[in-house]
């Protein structure tokens, strides 16, 4: 009787998890999508899209990224880099846990891959001006090779930092959109 009960529960779990369903909000514009767009975009007083794209590439190179793909007819540059993801706090935690449990296999974040797409788009509101938009995304692996984080980066400082450098590179002032 008990055995059968377990079977029912397990098969119920299987039915529930068998087909993965897409999260309901995955393709819905989020409430913050306008703020996100403003955070990730700046408008530049230039009609030279190629110069803006090329300035973006230079800044990405300065930041240690390698360019993966470019399509100048669509104003697109994609780039990526592998970086350290070791966080000293997390290591301390892992060591503490290992001391406590005797389990030396405690994992901590080790490595991350950051992917970027940099896109230029003619402004719909102001003719002759271009909007540059950059988006960062990262995947973090721990010491056991498991993915611990996969996310879109939304830190303000990162975007502000990028556009500060881009503005210097194109000798133009960036305007909030």
């Amino acid at each position: 009787m008990n055995y059968l009960r377990y079977c029912v529960v397990i098969s119920l779990l299987l039915v529930v998890s068998g087909c993965q369903t897409v999260p309901k909000d995955a393709f819905k514009l989020s409430a913050t999508s306008l703020q996100d767009r403003q955070l990730q975009s700046r408008m530049y007083d230039t009609a030279d899209e190629i110069a803006l794209l090329s300035a973006g590439i230079h800044v990405l190179q300065d930041l240690g990224y390698t360019v993966d793909e470019t399509e100048k007819n669509l104003g697109l540059v994609t780039a990526s880099k592998h970086a350290d993801a070791v966080n000293s706090g997390q290591i301390a935690g892992a060591v503490f846990l290992a001391l406590l449990t005797g389990n030396v296999q405690t994992a901590y974040d080790k490595e991350q891959k950051i992917k970027v797409s940099f896109v230029t788009l003619p402004s719909k509101k102001e003719k002759g001006k271009y909007i540059a938009r950059i988006t960062f995304q990262r995947t973090v692996w721990n010491t056991q090779g498991q993915i611990t984080t996969s996310e879109t980066v939304k830190d303000k400082e990162i975007y502000n930092g990028f556009f500060d450098k881009l503005s210097k590179s194109v000798f133009l002032e960036a305007h909030q959109i």
Partner: peptide, 26 residues
């Protein structure tokens, strides 16, 4: 980009765009 995708590649002549969204899932 509004939907939080990062563009992987695009081709103007073929009119194709491939993008990835990471948010705990892919």
């Amino acid at each position: 980009q509004d939907l939080n995708f990062v563009i992987d590649k695009a081709d103007a002549d073929l009119g194709t765009v491939t993008a990835t969204k990471l948010s705990g899932y892919q």
